[in-house]
Design a protein around this nucleic acid. Structure first.
Lengths: 67, 67
DNA sequence: ACAGAATGTCAAATATATTTGACATTTATT
DNA sequence: AATAAATGTCAAATATATTTGACATTCTGT
């Protein structure tokens, strides 16, 4: 999996730290970091939470052309 | 969670059975059924697979306004 | 250069998505 | 009405997402 740059950018736009985003979404900092590193595969529910907090769509933050 | 009507519709458009979609995506028929029933929470990777097979976007098939 | 915050990463434990098999119910076809 | 295909649902087992704690590294500001 590829690193998730769109999340990093959206987070920067909101001036949020990984920790802050993790807390806003109710997960651990390590999980948030791993998602941004593209090391796994969050649940769709979690993806939606992240989208809501960052004000972005699923397609903007989580689409990938090739698996 | 709410039943996922958009998947049902998209599947109908492609004239695919739950079983056929499940096979195309590499999961069990029961899991596909449960997803359509909104009983859980697939992985984003699986959501992307379903989107590719059905020719729809994440936002079209998996967005929900309220959790 | 120093200190503190933010990020990256690992291993072990826990929660939960997914599978398998089996059966009941509904829908479509003849 | 009868049969087959499609769908809905349950329980037990397995795979994997997520947590927790701990430590190393990079980034920022003073």
């Amino acid at each position: 999996m590829a690193r998730n740059i769109p999340i990093k950018v959206a987070r920067a736009e909101k001036d949020m730290t990984q920790k802050a985003l993790a807390e806003a979404v109710g997960i651990s900092r390590q999980t948030m970091n791993a998602i941004e590193q593209g090391e796994y595969n969050p649940t769709i529910k979690l993806c939606r939470s992240i989208c809501r907090v960052l004000g972005k769509s699923l397609d903007e933050l989580f689409w990938e052309d090739e698996e």
